[in-house]
Structures are given as structure tokens and as C-alpha cells.
Computed example of a mutant assay.
Amino acid sequence: MASHRSPRRTPQPGQGWPARITVLSAAAAGAAGALVPAAPAGAKPDDQPSAAGLNSRIDRLYEEAEVATEKYNGVAERAGKLREQVANAQDGVARGQARVNRLRDSLGSLAGAQYRSGGLDPAVALMLTEDPDSYLDKAATLDRIGSRQTARLRQLQSAQRHLAQQRSEAAAKLEQLDGLQKSLKQQKKDVQQKLAAARRLLGRLTAEQRANRDGHRSKSAAGVDLGGSKPSSERAAAAVAAVKSALGRPYAWGAAGPGSFDCSGLTQWAYKQAGTSIPRTSQAQRSAGRQVPLSQARPGDLVVYRDDASHVGMYVGGGQVVHAPHPGAPVRYDPVGMMPVSSVTRP
């Protein structure tokens, strides 16, 4: 019996990637195997890495994946804006071509009228050439056409020049967009490899070790004298309410809600619900307002982690942040000191 296979569809860049991360990352696991050396044949249990060692390697891979994710988010944001610019440029080209066509039709009507009234003046014929500039450069011939014809010809000349410029700009933007899409593809591959390697290491932990895996990452926030429990503004209060409403929703790299989030996608979404626009990446969010000391943090402030600003959460009071940690961990509370704090920003 002949078998029939369903045709495979190639996903378009930027569409539906977060939802397919599990399948795609599993497919990339083989390529990522080089990142996680297999245990030597015949190795004894005592030779295997400890749970703490495995957790440390998993955390490092998640951190590297988060760095790659924020790079991906930045490129995706630029690509999205450029797509809009390309669409506008193409619309401009279409409108410019339509105007050129209308002007040519108008000049053709003038030529027809002149022909019917006694023959086509060579000067009018020149107006219908593909290059009216060459005709206008010959100023000595302008006295052979009327002022109305001269005005129409100058309009056509200007329209053609503008159309050529629009086409050049549209072509340049398309070329730039192609480069960004190639960069997105590479960033996507990097994230998939890191996450696949982390998943392989997770598979070497026992069920109990996996359930308790995140315990070793949290550090106590005791002794940190934070600024207070009241948000700094009404919009900060609204952002806190929004981020709390996302508790329990899954992490998905490149996602900015409402069903799933990565770290910067969560904070951007929460402030969007409060009517405030902040940048997409954690690095850009660090500069999205006034920086304050950690000791003065108020609910709604953005807590940016690590020197490279590759992770961000929202301070919600009580020494806690709400954040999207990593794949497999939903949006949740954690102590503000769970990892090194780079800065605190008040949008």
C-alpha cells in the first residue's frame, strides 16, 4: 500500500516560534549534544556529576540561552519596525508610479489635441519620452511649447525623480530586512541549542532533584532594607497588578504575552497593561526610566540582573520580584536577591 505523507510547512520567521520551542528544541538536541559530553562507557555512579554540579551547568546554559534570547528579542524588534518601513516604502512606490502614469496620460491628451488641431509639435513629442530631463536641459527649445505644457513636463520630471528615490530606498530596506532575518535565524538556533543541552542535563537528575532544582538558586533577601511597600505611581501600581495576574503562566523564549512570556516580555506586557510603553529587551529596559538604589526599590520598579542585564523582573514589595525565570518554570515570585542585581529602574 502506498503511503501518503502530509506536506510539511516551513514556519515563517517571527510567527509562532515560542509555541514550537519544545518541538524545535528537541529536534536540536542532537546538534547540541556536543555541549553536554556523555558519561564514559562503564563509568561508575561515583564518577557521575553531583546534582549540585548538574544544576550549576544547567543554570549556566539557561543564562547563556537568556543572553541569546534577549539578543533575539532586540533583532526581532528591529525587524518588526523595518517590515513596517518596507511596507510603507512599497506603498509609496506604488503611489509614485500611479502619479507618473497620470501625468503621462495628461501629456498624451495634450499631444492628441495638438495633433488633431494641425499636427504634433516635435516639442510635445519629446514630452512623452522616457527621459524628460534630457529635454528640459535643452532650454533653447522651451519656447516651442506653451506654459501649460511646460508645467506638466516639469511635474512629470519631478515625479520620476521622486519615484526613482523611493525605489532605491525600498530596495535598501529590503536588503537590510533580509540581513536581520538571517540574524534572527542564527539567534534562534543558538537558543535552541542551549535549551536542548539544558534539557539533556535535566534528564540526568532524579524526579526529586528536578522538583527541588530551583531551591539552590534562591538567595535570602534578609537584611536588605528596601524602600517601601507602596508603588511609586498609579501606573506602577497597575503594572504590579498586571504582573501578578500573570503568575503561573509558562515561560516561552521570545514571548511577550498574554499566554506565555520570557523575562523582558513579561515586564513589557505588564507596563503595557498600565498604559505605558517600555522597550522590549532587558538591556533597553534598564535605561527606560530613572535608576534608583536597591535599598529604595518600590513596587513596580524593574530589577535588572547580571552585569550584561540579561534578566529582568518586577519588584512587587516584601523583598520579592515576579519574573519569568526560564523554560519549565512558570511566572512566579522569587527573592529580589536571587541573583546579582545590576540595577533598579523606575519607569
Rank of each mutant, 00 (worst) to 15 (best):
G112S: 13
G112K: 12
G112R: 14
Y115T: 11
R116K: 10
S117H: 06
S117N: 13
G118T: 03
G119D: 06
G119Y: 01
G119C: 00
L120I: 01
P122C: 08
P122Y: 00
A123R: 03
V124N: 04
A125D: 11
A125Y: 04
A125R: 09
L126I: 08
L126H: 06
M127H: 10
L128E: 02
L128M: 07
L128P: 00
T129F: 00
T129G: 07
E130G: 13
E130D: 14
E130Q: 14
D133R: 08
S134K: 08
Y135F: 15
L136M: 05
L136F: 03
D137V: 10
K138N: 09
A139L: 14
A140Q: 12
A140E: 13
T141M: 15
T141V: 14
T141D: 14
T141E: 13
L142H: 09
R144M: 03
R144K: 09
R144C: 03
R144T: 00
R144S: 10
I145K: 07
G146D: 01
G146I: 01
Q149A: 14
T150A: 15
T150R: 15
A151G: 12
A151W: 10
R152C: 06
L153D: 02
L153K: 01
L153N: 06
R154T: 08
R154G: 07
R154D: 07
L156G: 03
L156T: 07
L156K: 04
S158I: 11
S158Y: 10
S158F: 12
A159V: 01
Q160R: 14
Q160M: 09
Q160K: 09
Q160C: 02
R161N: 13
R161I: 13
H162G: 08
H162I: 08
L163G: 02
A164K: 10
A164Y: 01
A164D: 11
Q165G: 14
Q165P: 13
Q166E: 10
Q166L: 10
R167S: 15
R167Y: 11
S168N: 08
E169K: 14
A170I: 12
A171M: 12
A172Y: 06
K173F: 06
L174K: 15
L174H: 15
L174Q: 15
E175T: 15
Q176A: 11
L177A: 02
D178R: 15
D178Y: 12
G179A: 10
L180E: 05
K182A: 13
S183C: 02
Q186W: 01
K188W: 12
K188V: 08
K188D: 09
Q193Y: 01
Q193S: 08
Q193A: 05
Q193L: 14
Q193H: 04
K194L: 05
K194D: 09
K194W: 02
K194H: 06
A196T: 05
A196L: 06
A196S: 05
A197H: 00
A198N: 04
R199Y: 11
R199V: 03
R199P: 07
R199L: 11
R199D: 14
R200F: 03
L201F: 07
L201D: 04
L201Q: 04
L202N: 10
G203Q: 05
G203W: 00
G203N: 06
R204Q: 13
R204D: 07
